[in-house]
Design a protein around this nucleic acid. Sequence first.
DNA 1: AGACTAACCTGAAAGC
DNA 2: TGCTTTCAGGTTAGTC
Length: 292
Amino acid sequence: MPELPEVEVTRRKIAPHLVGRRIVEVLTTKPSYFFVTKPAALAKALAGKRVEALTRHGKYLLAVLDDEQRLLLHLGMTGQLFTAGVTSPRLLSSTKGGALTPEAQAAGFRPDKHTHLEIRFSDEGPTLYFRDTRKFGKVELLAKAASSKRLEKLGIDALSATGADLYRAAKKRRIAIKTVLLDQGVLAGVGNIYADEGLFVTGIKPTKRADKVTAAQCDALVAALQKVMLRSIETGGSSISDYVQPDGQDGGYQNERRVYARKGEPCSVCRTTIKRTVLATRSTFYCPSCQK
DNA sequence: AGACTAACCTGAAAGC
DNA sequence: TGCTTTCAGGTTAGTC
């Protein structure tokens, strides 16, 4: 679910609770697809390490440890990072499905069956939790100086990219421009919502062949993607289905999106009905009149 | 190499 | 009410 803006909001809110603290204990659920590094190895390697920094590249978070190992985190579709004591009706009700008693509200979040990673620290501060309902997320420990196949495949971070970066990739592809935007090897961090939003702002149809998109259009597209994503970060990201910020609050960008998940609604510019189609097996929303 | 599909999971919402 | 189908902010292994 989370794209670059949601991951960046998560990074900014989690970093103060993580950086500078020493890990004492790591609890996990049983081995699964979610754990690239096996839970037992993870727990053993992390114990006693201090976290030096929390960085982001595309949709990946990287916790840098004091022994130069790095913990790679990906939120997948439903991943959430937050700290103990967080209280929010949405987060709490999602863990039990019922009405909130005052006692539950006061107690805050408790790890549930979807909480796969719990990191405890040597100080009195809160425990860090990684919860992920669908387990499409990833946890991988990268040894000192080891390269990571996942990171190496990424293109330039979408917020640092230029139109030329996109044009270089687009001009040799005979597929839909939206599919190129979703390719993490081109602009890392762009996902389904922001691809649709950026294309709408630029007036380009998602199905337009990538090699037919001009250099000037690529410039405009990258600028639009960056403007939209920076605004989303400012407002706390998009809370459309599962996403909540690490402090339990909903983001605000879902209220500003122009086309994503607005099938049947009038276009904000020309009032034409927004259409939904499927592209690269993903839902795609666009205005048939504004986007050519 | 580039282009597509199926698969990894769980749960909410829509459809009948 | 209840059973079935559809859908979901992602990535990757496998096939042509």
